[in-house]
């Protein structure tokens, strides 16, 4: 029993990262219908930037995170304005190609600015908590708590604020939202800014828990889309449940079966869910 609980805790940390990636993807997809493949690379940019600010500029972790988040905010605005807005009225294939091109561009910029070395964001969170035989490393605990806090904030923002209501209105029915006076040119900017900041948070978490290196963003975005499909396209609760299910399934599979098949097993679970609920766990039929 302890082992199962331990594996669940193990899976929750990476599951939290998947949730943040998927939240960013699902808001963009839900509102704009764009498969934003560059999200993983943008996320890695956030991690690299934090590492750079700490190691080269000597900033403390908290300050480096704040600067990275602010940079993520601006980057999100620029991505929407310069990359996706020009093709908003064009065929979906245009946005698709832009997304692919943007992925290569951001990956290239990451390599150019930060090099090809794997980096680990240094932290001082080295304590280990033991709760009834289940050990929780301090860093993982903070990652889980931070992910929970961000999920709660995002949920409150979307459900309780005017801007959040406007985002939901555009997602539901763009034309009706225009008639109701929603500025549909501003909403995509807000969505990309938030989405990119969430991605930056995920990148920082990956960088602190594991490592950032070229190619990791691609794997992360694939997992993000898997969560999106598992949870239901455009659904925030779906992204949360889907991310945790994927993370915990991977941990259980690696712990009880074989790490070689953990991705396979996670995707088998996803396919099985989709056979029963093609719209995803929380998606609308």
């Amino acid at each position: 029993m302890i082992e199962i609980l331990q594996q669940i805790i193990n899976g929750m940390a990476i599951g939290g990262v998947y949730v943040l990636i998927a939240l960013g993807l699902t808001t963009v997809f839900g509102i704009l219908g764009i498969a934003h493949f560059a999200h993983g690379s943008v996320s890695m940019f956030g991690g690299y930037l934090t590492f750079f600010l700490m190691t080269s500029q000597g900033l403390p972790l908290a300050v480096a995170i704040l600067v990275a988040l602010a940079t993520g905010f601006v980057l999100g605005l620029l991505i929407e304005l310069l990359a996706y807005r020009p093709v908003r009225s064009a065929s979906h294939i245009n946005a698709f190609i832009v997304a692919l091109g943007l992925t290569m561009m951001v990956e290239g910029l990451n390599l150019e600015f930060f090099g090809h070395e794997q980096v680990v964001i240094p932290t001082d969170f080295n304590r280990v908590f033991d709760i009834g035989g289940v050990t929780i490393p301090e860093l993982r605990l903070y990652v889980i708590l931070a992910a929970a806090l961000l999920i709660a904030t995002m949920t409150i923002f979307v459900e309780k604020t005017k801007t959040g209501q406007a985002i939901r209105a555009v997602a539901e029915n763009r034309d009706a939202a225009i008639l109701m006076g929603v500025n549909v040119n501003t909403i995509p900017l807000v969505v990309f800014a938030i989405s990119t900041m969430l991605g930056v948070c995920a990148g920082i978490m990956v960088g602190a828990l594991f490592a950032i290196a070229p190619g990791i963003g691609e794997g992360l975005v694939i997992k993000g889309f898997a969560v999106l499909i598992l949870g239901g396209l455009g659904s925030i609760p779906g992204a949360v449940i889907g991310g945790l299910v994927l993370g915990i399934t991977e941990a259980l599979a690696a712990g009880f079966l074989s790490s070689a098949y953990k991705d396979v097993i996670a995707f088998v679970v996803m396919i099985t869910v989709l056979l029963v609920r093609p719209q995803g766990l929380m998606g609308k039929a």
């Binding site: 082992e3 193990n10 899976g11 991977e250 259980l252 009880f256 074989s258 070689a260």
Partner: peptide
């Protein structure tokens, strides 16, 4: 004998199993 892939960075599932 627990295995990991060369790109794996989270080995806590295998270590948890070993700990048991």
């Amino acid at each position: 004998r627990e295995a990991f892939g060369l790109k794996d960075r989270d080995m806590t599932p295998q270590l948890t199993k070993i700990r048991e």
